[in-house]
Design a protein around this nucleic acid. Sequence first.
DNA 1: GATTTTCTGATTTACGTACATCAAAATTGG
DNA 2: CCAATTTTGATGTACGTAAATCAGAAAATC
Lengths: 341, 341
Amino acid sequence: MKPTVHDIAAHAGVSLATVDRVLNQRPGVRHVTREKVENAIREIGYVRDVAAANLAKGRTYSFVFILPASNNSFMHGLTAEIRDAVARSPVERTQIRTVEVPAFDPDALVKALQALGAERPAGIALVATDAPEVVAAVDALVRDGIPVVTLVSDLTGSLRHHYAGVDNIAAGRTAARLLGRFLGGAKGEIAVLAGSMLVRDHRERLEGFAALMAQEFPDLSILPVIEGRDDPEMAHMLVSDALSKNDRIVGIYSLGAGNRGLIKALKAKGAGRQVTVVAHELTPNTRAALLDGTIDAILNQDAGHEVRSAIRVLKAKADGLSLIDAQERIRLDIFLKDNLP
Amino acid sequence: MKPTVHDIAAHAGVSLATVDRVLNQRPGVRHVTREKVENAIREIGYVRDVAAANLAKGRTYSFVFILPASNNSFMHGLTAEIRDAVARSPVERTQIRTVEVPAFDPDALVKALQALGAERPAGIALVATDAPEVVAAVDALVRDGIPVVTLVSDLTGSLRHHYAGVDNIAAGRTAARLLGRFLGGAKGEIAVLAGSMLVRDHRERLEGFAALMAQEFPDLSILPVIEGRDDPEMAHMLVSDALSKNDRIVGIYSLGAGNRGLIKALKAKGAGRQVTVVAHELTPNTRAALLDGTIDAILNQDAGHEVRSAIRVLKAKADGLSLIDAQERIRLDIFLKDNLP
DNA sequence: GATTTTCTGATTTACGTACATCAAAATTGG
DNA sequence: CCAATTTTGATGTACGTAAATCAGAAAATC
C-alpha cells in the first residue's frame, strides 16, 4: 500500500501535526525534528497524493494566458485551443482567463504583466514579445514566486520556467534542407517571405534557414527578405511582384503568417512556373494549398499541444511536481500531402 | 462553485442516498425518481469529481500491457517507456503489469488474452498480431466490459476501443513522396527492406509506398521486397547483395526494424554510390546514420507518446470519461538531420 | 528556579464522493 | 385492508490530505 502521512508520523515517531508542518513548510518545527521527518519521508518513499491534497485544499488553479491581438489563422487557432481548455477547466480544477494585448507592443505587455502580478494568479502563460523590459517584468513575477511559461515565442535571457513552443532555428534549418533537397541540385534563387524581422521567432527561422542554405546548398542564393507583416494583401502584392520581376526564383520559404496572399500569388503566376514552396503553420488555407500542390511542405507547431503543455507545466510548477520532459517537448511537425491529420 | 452531489439532491428534492444510487447505478430507484435526478444533474451541469471519487473508492487501475518478445530497438524503446510509466504509476493510481508473448504467434496471444480476461484488469493494451482468432479474443474481452486498446499495430475489424499508433499507409505514402522528391526526377530502382510481410504494419507501409510511387513517380520502379525478418545480420547480407548485383538502385525504403544491418551495408557499398535512404524508427543507430548522411530521413512513431496515450485512454474508458481526440492522435514524425529531438 | 518563548501532540473539521446500514415511507399484491 | 415488498431517507464512516485550535512539553532566557 502507498504510504500516507500517518505512516510518516509513525515511522518518524512524531505526531501527524508535525508531519503536516514539515510537509507544508509551516513554521514551528525544530531543525532536528524536521530532519527526522524528512528522513522518514525518504525512507518509506512517501509521495503526496496530489488529488487528495487538492481536494482538501479546495484549490482551483487560476491561470492567465496573455495573447497578442493578432488577426491571423495561427492566433485564431491558438485562442480556439485555449477556449477548449477553458471548457475542460472545471474538471481539472483550473480556471483560465485570457488577456489580450496589442501585438508587438512591449510596453503594453509589461503593463499587463505588472497588473497580473498584483492579483497573484497560480500561473501565467504569455506569447512573449522580445524586449528587455518584458524580460524584467517576467523576472519580477518569477522572483515573486509566480510560475511563468512562454508560449509560441520565447523570451531568452529571462527566468521563465518553461517554453512551450518549437525550436525556430531548427525549423528554419529543416525548411532549408527540405527546399534544397526537393530542388535536387538545381541552381536558382530563393525568396523568403516573413512577417516582420522584429519578431524573434521569424528572425530565428531565417537565421537557421540562411545558415543551412549557405552551408549545404551553395547553388541556391537567398534573396532579400520580403516582409509582408503577416498580412495577406501585402504578401500577395509583394510575392506577385517578386515573381514577375525575377524568373530565377525556384523556391519560396514562407516563415510567417499571411499565407493566403502567398498562395493567391502563386496560383496566378505559378501556372507556367515550377516553384517549390515550404510554408509554416497548418491552416485551412495552407492545407488546401498543400493538397493541390501549390505548397510542397508545411512546417507546423501544434497549438493544441502547446496550450495543453503550458497548462500542465503551470500546474506542475504550482504543485511543485516534476514533469515528463519528453511529453512537454513541442515538436516541429512536417506535413506533406500524405500525412495530414 | 462547482455543483456537488448535495446540490443535485437539493435540486431534485431527494436525498443524498438516492442521488448516489442513481449516480452509481445501484438498484432500488423508481423510474420517475431516477429521471428527476438525471434531470437535476443535467440542469445544474454536475460533473463528477473524479479525483474525489477515486479517493473514496481507494481505486487503483490495474492495467496490463501485452508485448511481443521481439529483440529490436523499437520494442526495447517501448518497454523502456512502459517502465517509466510504471515508475510514475503510484502517483497516478495505476498499477501496470506487462506480459510478454512470443512474437507473431496468434495462438499465444489469444491464450494470454483469455488468461487475462479471468482476472478482469481495468484495461488491456496489446501490440496486436493480426489474425481472426485474436480479433475474436479481443472482442470477447470488450463485450465483457474490459477496455482494450491496440498499441503500435492495430487490429482491424475488432471492437478494440482505441488504436494508439500511426497510420501506416500514410507512413508508406510519406516515405514514397520523400524519396521521390529527394531523388528529384531521377530514373532508377528502389529497394524495399521489410521485416516480414506477415505483419500488418509492414504490409500497410508497403501498400502506401507502392501506391504513391506508382502514381506520382513512374520513373522509379520498386524491386521485389527484401524480407530481413527485422534481423540486423540478415538485413546486412541481403542489402549488400542487392547493392552489388544491381547498380540501378538509387533509393532504399526500410520500413521495418533491423536497420543496423542496413546501415552497415550502406557504409560499405555506398562509398562510391549515391543512394537515398528513408528508414523507420528513430534509434541510436538510425540517429547516427541520419547525422552522418547515410540515411536521408527517418519516419518515427513516438513510443513514449503511444504508451502514455494508451494509459490515458484506458483510464478514461475505465472512468467513463471522454477524451481529447487531438491529444491521442499519434503523429508520424519526420526527422531530418536538423529537427532531431 | 521561575518565566517566557518555542516546539510538539492530540484532536477536529473539511474537501467531494462511495458505500453500507437501518429505519421509515410508499407502493404493490392478494 | 393488511402484509409483503420496494423505494427512499437519514446517518455514519472512509479515502488522504490540509488547516486550525488548544493544551502540554521542552527549550531558552533571565
